[in-house]
Each structure stands twice: as C-alpha cells, then as structure tokens.
Design a protein around this nucleic acid. Sequence first.
DNA 1: ACAAAAGTGTTGAGAGTACACCCATGC
DNA 2: GCATGGGTGTACTCTCAACACTTTTGT
Lengths: 234, 234
Amino acid sequence: MTIEVPENYDPSQFDRPSVTVDVVIFSFIDNNLKVLLVERDEAPYAEKLALPGSFVRINESLDEAAARALADETGLKDVYSEQLYTFGTPDRDPRTRVITIAYFALIPYSLIQQYPDKQSPKAQWISMFNLPDLAFDHGEIAHYALTRLRYKLEYSSVGFQLLPDVFTLTELQRAYEIILVETLDKRNFRRKILAAKVLKETGEKKKDGEGRPAKLYQYRDDAIAEIKTRRLFP
Amino acid sequence: MTIEVPENYDPSQFDRPSVTVDVVIFSFIDNNLKVLLVERDEAPYAEKLALPGSFVRINESLDEAAARALADETGLKDVYSEQLYTFGTPDRDPRTRVITIAYFALIPYSLIQQYPDKQSPKAQWISMFNLPDLAFDHGEIAHYALTRLRYKLEYSSVGFQLLPDVFTLTELQRAYEIILVETLDKRNFRRKILAAKVLKETGEKKKDGEGRPAKLYQYRDDAIAEIKTRRLFP
DNA sequence: ACAAAAGTGTTGAGAGTACACCCATGC
DNA sequence: GCATGGGTGTACTCTCAACACTTTTGT
C-alpha cells in the first residue's frame, strides 16, 4: 500500500524510525545456492530486486514479522529461520529512516515445488553467486547472510535444511562444496556427517541417474544440529 | 511522491515502535565480572536497575547510538563494542512498543578509575553472578551477553579488553576462569595465549604482591584477536 | 631458609588429513 | 563388459590434555 505525501515531505519530522524485517531466504536449486528476491514496483529502486520484507506490526514480535514476510512470499511456515543482524545506518533508505532487522532462512526447494501456486508471482530465485544490484543495502545484507551460512556449515550441520526431504550424501556434499567454494574429500565428508548423527537412512535408494544407486538419507528431527568443535580452553 | 506504508496503516495512530539501544558493559573488577547498571527513577520499574540505553536519534547510526549511551555513563569513547541481538517482543516495555538493539562492550576498569568523575553518578558496577531483578527484559539481555562473552573467550581472545593496560598472565587466566566458571591448566593456558601472538611483554615486572614478580604484558594493537579454530571441513 | 607465586616440558590420546580401489547398476 | 557414480579403510600428523617440579623474590 502506498500513500501520497506532499512535495515538501521531510522525513526528519518523524522522530521515530520505521522498523522493518528483511529475510534472506536461501535454497539449493539446480546445483546452485539461490536467494529469493522480489521485484519492487514503487520508488525508490523501482525495478530493482529486493529482499522480502515487511514493516513490523505493532503487536507482533520480530520473529513473527519475519515468519510472516517469509510466508507471504513462499506460502511456507515453520522453516529454519534465525535473526541475523540489524542494519540501521541513517541513509540506507533515501525516503526516511528505516531500521531493519535482518533474518536468514533455509528452505528445501521441494517444499516450494509442492505448492508452486503459493509462491508470490513477484518472487524469483536468483543465484547468490551472480547477484544483480539490489535495492537499498540488500546486497550487503545478502552477503552478510552468506558469510553466516558458510560459518554455520562449518560448526553445525544445517546443510540439510537447504535440500529436499530425502537426499543422497553426494548431493549433500555437492551443496557444501558449492556454498563453501571448495572441494571436499568424499570419505572424510561422509565420516564427519555420519558421526554427527543428524541423518538417518530411509532404506530407499535413488533409482534414477546413472551408476550405482545411492542410499537416500533424511534429517533426524530429534537431532541436535550443533557439532561440537574443539574448544579454545579445555 | 508516494511512500510505502504498512498494510494496517491507520493515520490516526502512531503505529511505529520506539527504537532504543541498550548496552551491556562488562569489566573485570576485584576478581569479578561486573556489569554497569543505572538506576531508573521513572515508572515503570522505578528503583530497579537497568542497562544503560538511549533512544536512537533520527540521524545517527545504531553503532553511534550505542557509543553515545556508553559514553554518557562512562565518559569513555573508542572501546570494544559490538552488536549483540535485537529484542522486540511486543510487551517487553509495558508502556509502549519498544524494540531495542542490544550491544555489548568490554572496558578495562583502569580507564574508569582514571577519570572517576566522568562516570555517571547513577551508574554502578554489579557482579554478573549476583544480579538483582532488572527492569524490562534486561536480565535476559545481560545473560545473553554473558553467553556471547564466554563464547568469544573460547574462539577469540578478547579477554584483555576487560583488564588494565598491563597485566600478568596469571591475572588474565584468573579472569578467564571466573568468567567461564572453571579452572584452567596454567601451562596450557600460557601456551595458547602466547601462541595467539596477541600479547607483548612490556619488559616490566609486577613489583607489589608476594612471591616471584610476574612479567607484565599488554595487548598488541596490531594483533588480530580471532583465533582460528579447527574447521568442520578441511 | 622458607613462604609464595611465577615459570617451564613431555608424553599419550584423539582428531584431522590425505589418499586409491572395489561395488552396484543400466545400457 | 563397460561406463558411471556409490561406497569404503588406513597410516601419518598434529593438536589437545594431563601432569609436577624448579625459579625468583620478600621476609
């Protein structure tokens, strides 16, 4: 919704900043890390892409606002999401002072495919490694989220959240490799992921594709995703 | 000119939340981790202690607002400070909707002692291990900051920021032990701290105190405080 | 000389890393 | 039977963790 404001509109007359949430929604699609972006059709930055976001309503929590923004664009609820950082330089939105609490979320693309009509027609999935200029400081926010995602891949095991319900270890490894931009040793990767005990075999095997069929795994809901790293002090 | 407004926009009411910063300021005083708290003299929570904080002004960044809040209570500028988390449940302040961006800061008590008159008379240093009930959700925020501090002690080496300009390794170890609530091995502690190359000897020795005089160290400004931990994947 | 705190090395265990071949399936 | 990707084990290295005695000073 937009309203008309006078020519002499002066943002500083509002002594309260506006508060929004913006969500960096990642998924792994076509062997690529993609982020969900929406077209803006209002000034400023019309025709630039932006992160999905929303004003924080007066009676909802920040987490709720982020979940709502995510659901508006994807139709999904109850996905992995966490608060990222709060961005609030005075000039990040040229219209008025806007402080945004950024979130990041990981969703399996299979859920989107299941209900394709629930995804907003304005939303599109763009490769994180080939981002266009985004509106506001959203490019910076997206890259901050990527850094956080890489960091989390290293000390926890949230990688599954980006993949379909069932997947092979090779597919999981491929996702790690593409996001981290490096190759990993197959045997060591498997040993560590399995040692973390966050996966369970489904008993099924992947039928399509060439070569020997791969075992299919899924995430154990009861598992704790944090992998203990060595501590600095014992 | 048009601007975007919330979907539930109602011009007759103020639908913008207030935005504040609150700062958890730690120092190590009298062999204890202490946090700087201020007396409130207005309702609600009059006579309860609260974190130092301030409304975010319309033309200052969040970092600037936090630095200002910190300087108002301590007289100090340019101290270690970072954004912690943003708290925004609708009822955290009973008067009105207030979203607060929490920061945490580490300062050496010696700086306070140097200019004692610059510290606000309303401010007091309270043991983090014996906190009274604080106003709003400030108790929760302070404990969140403690968790972050402990975590940072383990993978980086920010411990010095809590100590005077020069200190002995035993004093530094004592601080780690008290904050982490565990005893550390003296030889292993020294080896790791020195291997991180964030300290330099001053050449001086501590003269007072009993026993053999200890070498005095200070922080190397050019050092990088992050200690590399083992990565999950090579 | 003794009390008090500073300072210093070594060894065993466990995790990390590097590396190459056999297996199951479809065509 | 061969092409394709799946799956497996082992040896070396390095960091971590545990542990006790000597050194320097003041009294």
